[in-house]
Nucleic acid binder design. Structure first.
Lengths: 233, 233
DNA sequence: CGGTACGTTGAGTCATATCAACCATAGTGG
DNA sequence: CCACTATGGTTGATATGACTCAACGTACCG
């Protein structure tokens, strides 16, 4: 599932221009370049699992990763997705705890593993980097809090509408307006927090109401305002 | 609801020894002392509300604060509580967004307001402080993710058992073993994410099963293992 | 060709929400 | 001091959203 690939210098990586890495100087980038390990992960490959001790974090250069927790009876709860420019595993590195999520590759990915010491070093010595990382974490925390409220108060129907809009927003659609991320019905149910059958029924309701178009796993959003109305946004 | 009080130097504040503030030197503490505003807030007072632009964050010297989001139909969802040594409002300050929660005083509190620039300055110039603040945020994020999984997968009964244990753990019980935090049934339902009536019924079930003892709002946990079993912990 | 994973549909059940009535308590003002 | 009101707590009856179970369809793969 994993292939090693030649190092690409962080200097020539487009992700360098993302907010988090914008404030790194050449020396710092060089230091990352020298210490990172770049790997290609195929669909289905697991990067790390709940309980693993992390030796560093990962920068996603390409691909889509699913991040989930496993509940009491083994059911997945998808927490978020990561794509190009996102970092994963930093939470466990920073809090020095075992990983509390599992990460699985949904679309073939290129990942750069960067050791713990480098992350801690940057937070300690580069104030602007520390601020950006805090911003990122705080944004995630804000989203998590919103989702707690949604899941506690909204119906499955409302949540599904919201999730579809959210996915549309996060993964820009292709030319035909079809959601870029391809998920099984079960995965959708593991985001919304419901049974697979419920998702199937609701999706076909949405289709009948001409809110979406379905072709297997391909979902096209037809009526954004309609979905927003349903989602109470 | 609000009274101003004399400045107490941060140097002589016990919170100074908490992980987050442990790494501050005298100069930094002095700087906070000179710029903070200390206030006494009475029960029921609102410190800030969803949508407010924050001019700084708050350090809780004493008291208990309820932090919640307001859902679509006005129903509260309690996200967490803050007590002595906790800080509130830092998320919005760091991400430079309007507050996404409301904070209300449950037990008369003493709060120190510390301006934005000081927090940002410390993150930028004191690496150890930055690491501690990241740790704190990551811990909160981990807890939020766990709660998403719980609320999505567990029954109300399971969640109530878990919340009772969690409250017992967070707010140490008094001599009689009674939970230190006093909540209305409605507030309990706003943590668990359910209807008030459901909480009432479940609490009396727990009482009949001799898991807890009830005297109005006073809750005494009798059988921790039993609750753990119910909560699937 | 059979196997495996995913998708779909229907029927029955159950946990939980909703609605409604009622009680207890405390604070308020005339 | 009492009536009045507000707030919180409790209980019962009823409704329903969503889950579970089971059967079956579909598609791809070696």
């Amino acid at each position: 599932m994993i292939e090693h690939t030649n190092h690409v210098s962080c200097n020539s990586c487009t992700i360098r221009t993302f907010p988090l890495f914008r404030h790194l100087n050449n020396e710092e980038l060089q230091n990352i370049s020298l210490n990172k390990i770049t790997e290609i992960h195929k669909r289905g490959s697991i990067i790390y699992q709940e309980g693993n001790r992390m030796k560093g974090f990962c920068c996603v250069q390409k691909g889509i990763i699913k991040i989930y927790k496993t509940g009491f009876d083994g059911k997945e709860q998808i927490i978020r997705f990561a794509q190009s420019g996102d970092i994963i595993g930093y939470r466990s590195v920073m809090s020095n705890e075992p990983a509390c999520t599992t990460t699985k590759v949904l679309e073939d990915s290129i990942l750069c593993h960067i050791p713990t010491e480098i992350l801690l070093g940057l937070v300690k010595t580069n104030g602007n980097f520390a601020v950006e990382l805090m911003k990122l974490t705080c944004k995630e925390l804000g989203e998590a809090n919103s989702y707690i409220t949604d899941i506690a108060q909204k119906t499955v129907r409302e949540r599904l509408a919201e999730i579809l809009l959210h996915l549309d927003n996060e993964f820009e659609a292709d030319i035909n307006g079809i959601l870029k991320i391809s998920l099984t019905r079960e995965e959708l149910s593991n985001i919304v927090g419901t049974a697979t059958e419920s998702i199937i029924r609701l999706l076909s309701e949405f289709k009948n109401e001409e809110l979406i178009e379905l072709k297997g796993r391909k979902i096209k959003i037809l009526d954004k305002p309609g979905l927003k109305y349903i989602a109470n946004i």
